[in-house]
């Protein structure tokens, strides 16, 4: 198991940690593989653009780094675009992840989808 420098950077100095007080989309998922938990907070404006995103994660280094990277990637994007974010996009942006840690990036993609769904549910 060997993390890239990008992973380590995003782990040691993660971006967007914490809760967004006025989040209007919140998603939490857990990994069946390891029991870890990731929670994503989104602040989406009326045009469907993600103005801000943050996370809280109980998990491994890859989970923290994926959370950091994924939230960073979707800020400024529309929820349609953000909803299409694939875990492989996160992995690529991190410069790769060890095989056994791919599922941690899946967690990030799923948490974002869950948060968008939460926003949609609330709006509906």
């Amino acid at each position: 198991m060997e993390y890239t420098d990008v992973v380590m950077e995003n782990f040691t100095c993660p971006k967007h940690v914490g809760e967004i007080e006025d989040a209007n989309g919140v998603g939490q998922v857990g990994s069946p593989a390891c029991g870890d938990i990731m929670k994503i907070f989104l602040k989406i404006n009326d045009n469907g653009i993600i103005e801000n995103a943050s996370f809280k994660t109980f998990g491994c280094g890859a989970a923290v780094a994926s959370s950091s990277m994924a939230t960073d990637m979707i800020i400024g994007k529309s929820i349609e675009e953000a909803g299409k974010l694939k875990n492989s996009d996160v992995v690529d942006a991190l410069g790769g992840l060890p095989d056994v840690k791919i599922h941690c990036s899946v967690l990030a993609a799923e948490a974002i989808q869950a948060a968008i769904q939460d926003y949609k549910n609330k709006k509906a």
Binding site: Y3, D36, F58, G59, C60, G61, A63
Partner: peptide
């Protein structure tokens, strides 16, 4: 409690 081992190790 409430934290994961690998994160401690990396830190």
């Amino acid at each position: 409690a409430y934290i994961e081992g690998e994160s401690i190790l990396l830190s």
